[in-house]
């Protein structure tokens, strides 16, 4: 039995689905965030495996861009999380009105 592209694709699909399950079932924002990062890494395996199979380097370049974008997004997302936690439990509009009147 030889190692083929399909092996890598299977593993990547499994990691992708695990990450997706995490996004859909967990409630902690940070864990959801990590699960999405895991999904992106799984896509990376698929891209690199296809890049290897077809002997085109474009797939690796594609993942490089995905990596850059994911890094930028993580900065934004974590900033929002920090701002939210700084606010305390975020009040909604009604709650705020009752507090102030």
């Amino acid at each position: 039995m030889d190692l083929t592209t399909n092996h890598f694709l299977f593993v990547s699909a499994a990691l992708f689905v695990i990450g997706m399950m995490g996004v859909l079932t967990r409630r902690n924002i940070l864990i959801i965030f990590m699960c999405v990062e895991m999904m992106v890494a799984a896509v990376g395996i698929t891209l690199v495996a296809f890049s290897h199979e077809t002997a085109t380097i474009n797939g690796q370049v594609f993942f490089l861009f995905a990596l850059a974008v994911a890094a930028a997004e993580s900065a934004v997302g974590l900033a929002i999380v920090v701002a939210l936690s700084r606010q305390g439990r975020a009040p909604d509009v009604e709650e705020m009105q009752t507090l102030k009147n």
Binding site: F16, G19, M20, V23, I29, I32, F33, V36, M39, V40, A42, V43, T46, L47, A49, F50, E53, T54, N58, G59, F62, A66, V69, E73, V76, G77, I80, V81, L84
Partner: peptide
């Protein structure tokens, strides 16, 4: 913003996976 961000990120990962398959 957080909700939009999280689901947007999730959507991007799915989109990326689809594009990876089309590329493959």
């Amino acid at each position: 913003g957080l909700k939009y961000f999280m689901l947007g990120l999730f959507a991007s990962a799915i989109l990326l996976y689809g594009m990876a398959w089309i590329y493959g």
